[in-house]
Structures are given as C-alpha cells and as structure tokens.
Amino acid sequence: MSPHPRDGRDAILGRVRRALGVGAEDAERRVAIQKRLYDHVRNLVPARTKGSADDLIKQFKEMLESQSAKVSEVGTADEIPELIAKELRDNNLPSRLRMGDDGFLVEIDWDRAPTLEIERGRSDGHDPVGLSHALVGVSETGTLILISGADNPTTLNFLPETHIVVVRAEDIVGPYEDVWERLRETYGERAMPRAVNMIAGPSRTGDIEQTIVMGAHGPRRVHVIVVEE
C-alpha cells in the first residue's frame, strides 16, 4: 500500500543505527531490551497510591469529584436501578439507557425500577444515557478503566450525553500499574484488549479563551456508582 514499504523501513532503521553508531546484530542490546519488555519493572510510583482500601476509595471519590464527576456509593448492586431512575428524573433525562452484555450489570435486578427502559448493544449516537462497568478504578487520579468488547461497548463511553459507570469497591486500586497487572493476568504477556479507555470525568474543552466547558464531544455528565459488595 505504501509506495516502497520495505525501503522505507530498512532505510529508516539503517539511518537510526548509523546515527547511534550501532549494528543490527547487537546481541547485548537485544537481550537487555527483551528483559526490559518482560520484567514489568515499575518506575517511581507516587506515595499517594499507598493506603488502606478505605483511603483509596476516599481518594478515588475525591479525585473524581474534583474533576466534575458525580460519585454515589451503594451497599449492594440491587440499589443501582432505583438510584439511576432517580438520578435521571432529577436531571430531567429520559428514563432510557443502553448497556452491553456485562455479566455484573446483566445480573442486576432491573425490575426494581420498572420505569427504566433498558436497551443493549453498541450506541449509534442517539442514546441519552450509557451504562458501563469499569474493570478497575484508579485512585491516584480518580480514573475509571473501561475495556472494549461486547460487555462494555466503547461507543457507550463517548456518544451518550450522560455516562453512568459502575465500579466495585474491591476493584479500586492505588496506581495505574495495578491495572496492567490485572490485564496481564487476563490477556497474557504483551497483550492488550483492543481498547483500554481511562476516563477521569466528563468530556471538556478549554479551547475558547481557556474557559472550561463540559461536554465538548463526549458525555456532559459522568456519574460513578461505587458498589460496596
């Protein structure tokens, strides 16, 4: 597809090697690089990521709130339908939401909020509310980790004006690095799901006179529900 793909590649790598004064068959460097790629050594991790589970949940919550997200805590997942129904009512939003096939979300007893209309699958851009389940919450910056796939379609993260994200308290970790550890357990070494979305509040822009406005292209509202058990 590109005009001379191999030429481009070899010429560029050749120039890089000449500039560095190294050869392609540099066994010592190759071994060192492989080690680095497989060892998962952590660089400096900020001290704020250490603390009890409660500390981390508190930090996660405060960070998200300072980034203009709303955070609610519920004891059990069965409280979620009524909470969402009320939230949508309070904000004059239609009681219609869309979610994927996520096991945790599907298991919830949605009949507890009979007014809620629930649709499934990816968004085509016309859904007022998206509901997702975050794999992890990172406390150091109040960041939700969402993984692409049929369980939680990526389009739900960006197209609806309101995004509700459920995260289990036990999935809240301190630093980003803990996320990679969990992903490697699930996906294996040197592998990633198609998309890992880190989300830290509603979409925003400061592009006009540095005035911050929510809802630039993605959700105007992000509501995070932390489930204790």
């Binding site: 960041t143 990633m192 198609r194 890992v196 830290a200």
Partner: peptide
C-alpha cells in the same frame, strides 16, 4: 491530575 481521556488502542 490527568487528562479526561487516555486511550490505549491495540
């Protein structure tokens, strides 16, 4: 503290 969206695409 961090940007709103950081996305890793693979």
């Amino acid at each position: 503290e961090c940007s709103t969206y950081t996305t890793f695409s693979t």
